[in-house]
């Protein structure tokens, strides 16, 4: 057992490939045999991943999902920002330039709406829960944009750590909801072409949510959604602690 443990953790990344591969195979089998292709195999795999992260969180008390289990540490490298960005960029190889150019202007439009709408919603909920100071309201509103914009904004404005935690949790919850919800609503919101995928990426923001959700819906749409989503966090980090904060302060005063 000790020797096996050593073999697995000494080859952490290889272990991760093997385990994720097994999960993918299992999910595709479930999709095909139990659900008759009604739910995409990747959607099932992502839900299994999230469920495993939940269980691991209960078991280890850590905050990094299955990565807190020593033999599974390689999952952290495999699904970390470095390889994730590397693989997202690779998907650009399949982008149809003509299609992407057609949706350029509407994508930028979606990007602006995707920052402002969640911010307004998050801020209103913060006010409804009794927050009255501009810093807390802005930080929670920014968390509803993405879970990176939240803490970046909070740190810039000097928000309390409880508010920061709420802000991050809102962003993470949003990402998880987007991952699970996208394949369910895809048909209803017309998510079957590059144009709407770019609009979707700009509006939903959260690269992890968008890429996971689109992967579970139709893999071919991923590069289009990622292309706009990637500007979302930067834009949010730019406007939330500056313009949006000033507007909130102007409304609630102080």
């Amino acid at each position: 057992m000790e020797i096996l443990k050593h073999a697995l953790s000494a080859n952490a990344l290889v272990t991760a490939f093997a385990i994720v591969g097994l999960v993918m195979w299992l999910s595709n089998a479930i999709s095909k045999r139990l659900l008759f292709g009604r739910v995409h195999g990747s959607a099932i795999a992502i839900v299994i991943g999230l469920a495993a992260a939940f269980a691991a969180g209960l078991w280890t008390g850590g905050d990094k999902g299955v990565v807190d289990i020593p033999v599974l540490a390689g999952i952290g490298l495999m699904g970390g920002a470095m390889l994730r960005d590397f693989a997202i960029v690779a998907t650009a190889f399949e982008v149809d330039v003509i299609q992407a150019r057609k949706a350029g202007a509407i994508g930028a439009c979606a990007l602006a709406l995707g920052t402002i709408l969640p911010f307004i919603v998050g801020s209103l909920v913060a006010v409804a829960f009794g927050y009255t100071d501009a810093v807390s309201i802005t930080t929670i509103g920014a968390g509803a944009v993405t879970y990176i914009v939240g803490p970046v904004t909070g740190a810039a404005l000097g928000a309390s750590s409880a508010v920061m935690a709420l802000s991050i949790a809102t962003g993470v919850f949003k990402a998880v909801l987007v991952m699970i919800g996208t394949p369910i609503v895809a048909k209803a919101i017309g998510l079957d072409n590059p144009r709407s995928a770019m609009v979707f990426g700009g509006l939903m923001g959260t690269v992890s949510g968008v890429s996971g959700g689109l992967a579970a819906t139709d893999r071919r749409l991923v590069p289009y959604g990622a292309l706009t989503a990637t500007f979302h966090t930067g834009l949010g980090c730019l406007v939330a602690p500056s313009i949006l904060y000033l507007i909130v302060r102007g409304i609630v005063g102080g």
């Binding site: 299994i48 991943g49 990094k64 699904g79």
Partner: peptide, 10 residues
Amino acid sequence: VVAMAAQQNV
């Protein structure tokens, strides 16, 4: 992406 999902603070 599956590996990424497995390390979220769900």
